[in-house]
């Protein structure tokens, strides 16, 4: 009985030493981890700033494009009136030249619309940045939990882990491998009777 107790105490002592050693190692790793994670909120703020900056830049390009579109629309109306007037006084050659200019303006209108739609890159980039921000925030929450659990930092409450990072990461990864293009979407739509 005595031997058994001695053995048990010995094993308990060994276990306690192992635990203490593990805690010390975690503390050694955790302290720099805690300080390394301090810039994370600034990093997320910078990422969100990127969204804001690209949005502002994109809106400015759109504003200028729309001004050109409006000018084109006015010029096209004027040209149409002039072409009619010239045809009425039998200036066919001049009317044809103006009509050609009007046609070139119409081509430019198509290009302007292409510029507008190409600017949708900003929306796609912003959506990815938002997902990345969610991932960074989730990692930050988990780091803070680690810091508090292992007593590396006493102050501050434990934030609730949102657990959204995995889902955001899954969505980002999925967009690389399984995202469908419009033609495949159309194929699926037609399977469901969309003509």
């Amino acid at each position: 009985m005595l031997n058994a107790n001695t053995k048990l105490y010995g094993e308990l002592g060994e276990l306690a030493r192992s635990l203490e050693s593990a805690m010390r190692k975690v503390s050694e790793i955790g302290a720099p981890l805690a300080s390394d994670s301090a810039p994370l909120p600034q990093a997320t703020a910078h990422l969100l700033d990127l969204n804001k900056m690209t949005e502002e830049g994109t809106l400015e390009v759109m504003r200028l494009t729309e001004m050109i579109q409006d000018n084109h629309a006015r010029a096209a109306r004027e040209l149409a009136v002039m072409v009619s007037a010239l045809e009425a006084v039998d200036c066919q050659a001049l009317a044809a030249r103006l009509a050609k200019t009007a046609s070139e303006l119409a081509q430019d209108d198509k290009h302007l619309m292409s510029i507008m739609t190409a600017l949708s890159f900003q929306d796609l980039v912003a959506q990815r940045v938002k997902k990345l921000v969610t991932i960074v925030e989730d990692v930050q929450c988990k780091l803070v939990e680690l810091v508090v659990v292992f007593g590396l930092e006493q102050a501050g409450a434990v934030p609730e882990s949102k657990g959204k990072a995995d889902e955001m990461l899954r969505q980002l990864e999925a967009s690389k491998s399984t995202a469908i293009k419009q033609d495949l979407a159309d194929e699926l739509l037609s399977e469901f009777g969309f003509k």
Binding site: E55, M62, M113, M116, T117, L119, S120, Q122, D123
Partner: peptide, 17 residues
């Protein structure tokens, strides 16, 4: 309907055109 102002503007522009 879109939370991104840029996308709303693109679609509205196309509709106008």
């Amino acid at each position: 309907v879109d939370d991104m102002s840029t996308m709303r503007r693109i679609v509205m522009n196309i509709m106008k055109q």
